[in-house]
Design a protein around this nucleic acid. Structure first.
Length: 589
RNA sequence: CGGAGCGUAGCACAGCCUGGUAGUGCGCCAGUUUUGGGAACUGGAAGUCGCAGGUUCGAAUCCUGUCGCUCCGACCA
């Protein structure tokens, strides 16, 4: 009868009449000490989840209902976009991970388990290897392409430090999808289709998420977007232009660059000077009056076991993701002090690249043409001045390595850029042929030629999305669920719970009518004081509360109180219509 | 893995410095009074003080180790 009923998860048709007294909603008046951020506190206080141990949570009935609704929205939109649902093993043989090379490159996040024969297995943090193996076996012809498989499944990741409840957990629910195409154009279509599906999914979940350009890491390529929910507690930083024309993860973001260094005519040769005790860029600025932008910052990294020098302007910060791209490997780290001394003969604070041989030098583009610069002399307490970079330093590779700073100008619009924190809830990524080549997912084209499929992968953190909604939608009293994913859309608060009372009779009647019309409703029949019912209902965040009590019923009225908005008084006979009208007016997406 | 902090009743915490009867508030159970915004009173149940070892006549308290949790950092295809 009503359209919204159709979006309920499969299997919800024969719901038991849900009385608050018969379910399990352990709300907390006080905040548990373990929770730091608001969404985590509210997850616990409103009785949605409980922690088993760090990074592992049990979903309680209320939390599970919200989770299932998010899943249902994801499923609907993936199906609408033409993706096919499958379900793959979480437990996987390590040999397919060896084939893709990720047994090594992803070893830090992989959980390993042994069976009784002492054979090793891994728990999947994602499923590229499994799906590509399937497609390698089953898809042989261009006629079978394109194809896009997805699943909603528990993933495992050996997080060093789980935190913030469901935000960063050892075990979490991810929707992952993998597209296979015969050529680049088709792959771009698949990508675009997922991008649009994601936009709809987050909209329907009531989330304000923005798509930002994302780092593609070692694999390169321009096609990667992350869907970010702006939030102070987010673990990512997003650089954006207020025009809306540019937004990127800070790992990827570029700008028109920092303030230009004032040119200095410098034809002199570089020369050493004494800088006793100087350890930082700031020391040099303060004690020798040398602007940071006139200094060369020299960092030593170890990439694939070999030292490399990284040069930046003194006032810039290295963006490590960019360095990874330039190095072409993810296997790198900052060198330790001992390694620095061994490679360059001085301690950090006096490092430089002038005259260094045998170590590759990667320099930030901003330094190109830099004259009259100051840098360490690879001799503790000594620096060099009058350094002309292109004359005095052998640079192996110039690259964008610096991190963008607030206020730099947008490459698209010329307006100042802003930076804010955000939660990553989804990621679309054009993979290319890395996995199809490694695992033999090839197809024959119409001329009989064999090619690896072009792949894309697309993830949504389902559990994280749920918490991101809470992080974005709450007030001082509790959660403000969008109707689309609220555990219940309507809570009937009966203030006289005697089974034969007029109040309870009306409450039951309304319950049955709402349920029969596909509205998701809970009846608070607990024998507790009204204040507790009101507070709990606000904490749990049900979008609409119907209050029925003797006081108003004696005047022929009941109360319809939106979680956000003014109370509506109406007669019992008008109640259904009012509720339907409100729900219709407040649907999301 | 580095740094910091914390483990005492279901939850939030005091007690520890200065060793000697296990405490407070909320919650829970029973009763009475209440009854439209987290009630009041009375009574009650509930803790091997994270675990192990040591010092001591005696350890929640001091020492050593260990496990767990939280925060900061490192990490995050």
């Amino acid at each position: 009868m009503f359209a919204w009923a159709k979006c309920w998860p499969v299997g919800w048709r024969f719901n038991f009449k849900m009385r608050w007294s018969q379910t399990f909603i352990p709300t907390l008046k006080e905040t548990p000490a373990e929770a730091e951020i608001l969404s985590h506190k509210l997850l616990l206080r409103s009785g949605l989840v409980r922690k088993l141990t760090g990074g592992l949570y049990t979903f309680l009935p209320l939390g599970l209902r919200a989770l299932r609704k998010v899943e249902a929205i994801v499923r609907e939109e993936m199906n609408r976009a033409g993706a096919l649902e499958v379900f793959m093993p979480a437990l996987q043989p390590p040999d397919i991970w060896a084939k893709s090379g990720r047994l090594e490159t992803a070893k830090d996040v992989l959980f390993h388990v042994k069976d009784r024969a002492r054979k090793e297995w891994v728990l999947g943090p994602t499923h590229e290897e499994v799906i590509t193996t399937l497609v390698a076996d089953e898809v042989n012809s261009y006629r079978q392409l394109p194809v896009n498989f997805y699943q909603i499944q528990t993933k495992f990741r050996d997080e060093i430090r789980p935190r913030f409840g469901l935000m960063r957990a050892k075990e979490f629910i991810l929707k992952d999808a993998y597209s296979f195409d015969a050529n680049n154009e088709a792959a771009n279509v698949s990508y675009q289709r997922m991008y649009e599906a994601y936009t709809r999914i987050f909209e329907r979940c009531g989330l304000r998420a923005i798509a930002v350009q994302a780092d593609t890491g070692v694999m390169g390529g321009a096609h990667s977007h992350e869907f970010m929910v702006p939030a102070e507690t987010g673990e990512n930083e997003v650089v954006y232009c207020e025009s809306g024309k540019y937004a990127a993860n800070i790992e990827k973001a570029t700008s028109q660059g920092p303030v230009k260094t004032t040119p200095i005519d410098n034809f002199g040769t570089s020369e050493k000077f004494e800088t006793p005790g100087v350890k930082t860029i700031e020391d040099l600025t303060k004690r020798f009056d040398i602007l940071a932008e006139r200094q060369i910052k020299t960092l030593l990294y170890i990439a694939d076991g070999k030292p490399v020098i990284v040069l930046l302007r003194g006032d810039d910060q290295l963006q490590e993701a960019k360095l990874g791209g330039a190095l072409g490997t993810g296997n790198f780290r900052a060198a330790g002090d001992a390694e620095v001394v061994e490679a360059l003969g001085a301690h950090p604070g006096s490092l430089g690249a002038v005259g260094v041989t045998g170590i590759s030098v990667y320099a930030d583009e901003v330094l190109r043409g830099g004259c009259g610069m100051v840098t360490g002399a690879n001799d503790d307490g000594q620096h060099l001045r009058n350094v002309n970079i292109e004359r005095d330093i052998t640079v192996e590779m110039w690259a964008d390595l610096r991190q963008v700073r607030t206020g730099e100008l947008c490459v698209e619009t010329g307006q100042p850029l802003k930076i804010r924190r955000a939660i990553e809830v989804g990621h679309v990524f054009k993979l290319g042929t890395k996995y199809s080549e490694a695992l033999g997912a090839t197809f024959l084209d119409e001329h009989g030629g064999s090619h690896p499929s072009i792949m894309g992968c697309y993830g949504i953190g389902v559990t994280r999305t749920l918490q991101a909604v809470i992080e974005q939608c709450h007030d001082e009293h509790g959660i403000l669920w969008p109707t689309s994913i609220a555990p219940y859309e309507v809570c009937i608060t009966a203030l006289d719970v005697e089974p034969e009372s007029e109040v309870m009779k009306l409450a039951n009647r309304l319950y049955d009518e709402l349920q029969a019309n596909g509205v998701d409703v809970i009846l608070d029949d607990r024998s507790v004081r009204p204040g507790i019912k009101f507070k709990d209902s606000e904490l749990a965040g049900f979008p609409l509360r119907i209050g029925i009590g003797e006081r108003s019923l004696s005047k022929g009225q009941l109360e319809i109180k939106p979680r956000v908005g003014e109370m509506i008084l109406c007669s019992p006979n008008d109640a259904l219509g009012q509720v339907f009208e409100w729900i219709e007016a407040n649907r999301v997406g």
